[in-house]
């Protein structure tokens, strides 16, 4: 993946496929302590211990169209390449939580990419899922949730093609406020 936003898109797809109804995403960027941490948790079908142990191994997948899974091993590898860490927890019937931490100043640390567009795309593509997305930049935060958007738009379909650009603009202007793009 060429940036972090694409990893988010990919990892959240796993939660969607696992039938999650609630998905929480936290992106915590800290320049003082030199890290970027991505946490994703869901209430999807989860994985048992045995499977979970193998899931970071690229030969583990439940998909039938390809023999290897890639999303999780790639994220783990990209985090660890920077000297960061990766962890994943899961319980069948309860859900899954994963955390990837990157060392920001490391030369291999991925750029953030289009965070606002990715969040908007996910929230508008899966309007029936309750997303809560928190972006923190040096302890200033912006939080956006599906329920909040639904309320503001009074029942307009979030997945309508006219709604998506407006949601995207709302999220992006708030992320601009956090100066997410000029962190240097």
């Amino acid at each position: 993946m060429k940036d972090l936003s694409l990893h988010i898109l990919d990892i959240v797809q796993n939660s969607v496929v696992a039938n999650a109804k609630v998905i929480q995403i936290t992106l915590d960027i800290n320049t003082t302590n030199d890290y970027i941490e991505l946490a994703v948790s869901d209430n999807g079908k989860g994985m048992d211990k045995d499977f979970l142990q193998r899931v970071v191994d690229p030969f583990t997948t439940t998909r039938t169209t390809r023999k290897v899974g890639l999303g999780i091993p790639l994220l783990k590898q990209n985090a660890e390449l920077t000297g960061g860490t990766f962890s994943i927890d899961s319980e069948p019937g309860v859900g899954t939580a994963l955390k990837a931490r990157f060392v920001r100043s490391h030369i291999d640390c991925l750029p953030l990419g289009d965070i606002g567009g990715t969040i908007a795309l996910l929230m508008c593509s899966y309007p029936e899922i309750e997303f809560t997305v928190k972006t923190v930049v040096n302890s200033h935060e912006f939080l956006v949730s599906t329920s909040e958007l639904r309320e503001a738009l009074e029942g307009l379909p979030l997945n309508d093609p006219s709604v998506y650009p407006v949601v995207k603009e709302y999220i992006n202007s708030n992320l601009d406020e956090l100066q997410i793009t000029n962190l240097g």
């Binding site: 909040e148 503001a152 009074e154």
Partner: peptide, 20 residues
Amino acid sequence: TKVKSLADLKKMKETLQAKI
């Protein structure tokens, strides 16, 4: 003007509804 707050978003509702 830019859509920055939930109130701004709410104001867009009618325009969007018309388009839909």
